[in-house]
């Protein structure tokens, strides 16, 4: 294999990591608070706001029900507005992030739901404010579950980012399709897949290690 090809593969790998990394971080930054909001505004919760909760839940569900490939093309004008282009790595980050936010939010909501209600009650009996309950009880106690959720998100983003390759998003998916599929180069295809497998394994192992560190159960 030519060194040009190797360089191409390396670049594609870095592109994928870049897309997953940036969209993952932004999605976490926005999805975790959204997940908290989804949880604490539930009826009988510490900041019960049923109307807001229903509205947020609906938006989240809509976000989650749009197939990624359609979301990607549907929001092209928005993407262009944000990054100034509808193709390329940066352009792929916008739909990736948008798809990941509701995903993260639901996983975080689920993780918070696993925190025993007695702990919230105990904190209330100590005179904790809702903000204190979120920051000192709910989030630390759900840390393991949230990390698990973010790991799942990262893995999902890796596969979504490959899809982004289909519309000129760059990265390993793009490489696999252009060189592996369109030019019938099975070696590139295999290498692409192998790198993706290693990447997913890496994310999973990292996530598992972080969960072990966070969990004292």
């Amino acid at each position: 294999m030519s060194s040009a090809m190797l360089e191409l593969i390396l670049m594609a790998t870095l592109d994928t990591l870049y897309m997953v990394g940036v969209s993952g971080l932004v999605a976490a930054a926005l999805g975790v608070p959204l997940g908290v909001l989804l949880y604490v505004t539930r009826p009988r919760q510490i900041l019960a706001m049923p109307t807001l909760n229903t509205a947020l839940g609906m938006i989240t569900n809509i976000g989650r029900s749009i197939p990624f490939i359609i979301l990607m093309v549907a929001i092209i004008p928005f993407t262009r507005f944000i990054v100034g282009s509808s193709i390329g790595t940066n352009a792929a980050i916008v739909p990736l992030t948008l798809a990941a936010i509701p995903f993260v939010a639901r996983l975080v909501e689920g993780a918070l739901n696993e925190v025993p209600p007695g702990l919230v009650e105990a904190a209330q009996s100590m005179g904790a404010t809702p903000y204190q309950i979120i920051t000192k009880v709910l989030l630390p106690e759900a840390r393991g579950g949230i990390i698990t959720g973010l790991t799942i998100t990262a893995v999902t983003l890796v596969s979504y980012s490959a899809m982004a390759g289909a519309v000129g998003g760059g990265g390993l998916g793009d490489l696999g399709i252009r060189y592996g599929y369109n030019r019938f180069n099975p070696v590139v295809m295999l290498i692409t897949v192998a790198i993706l497998v290693v990447m997913v394994q890496g994310f999973q192992s990292l996530g598992d290690a972080l969960v072990r560190k966070a969990d004292h159960k």
């Binding site: 025993p116 007695g118 702990l119 209330q124 106690e141």
Partner: peptide, 22 residues
Amino acid sequence: ELNQARHRIGMIFQHFNLLASR
């Protein structure tokens, strides 16, 4: 004010309700 007042009332529970992360 209620939160302030609750600082002067301790409570313990059947299932302890300790934070596992602490």
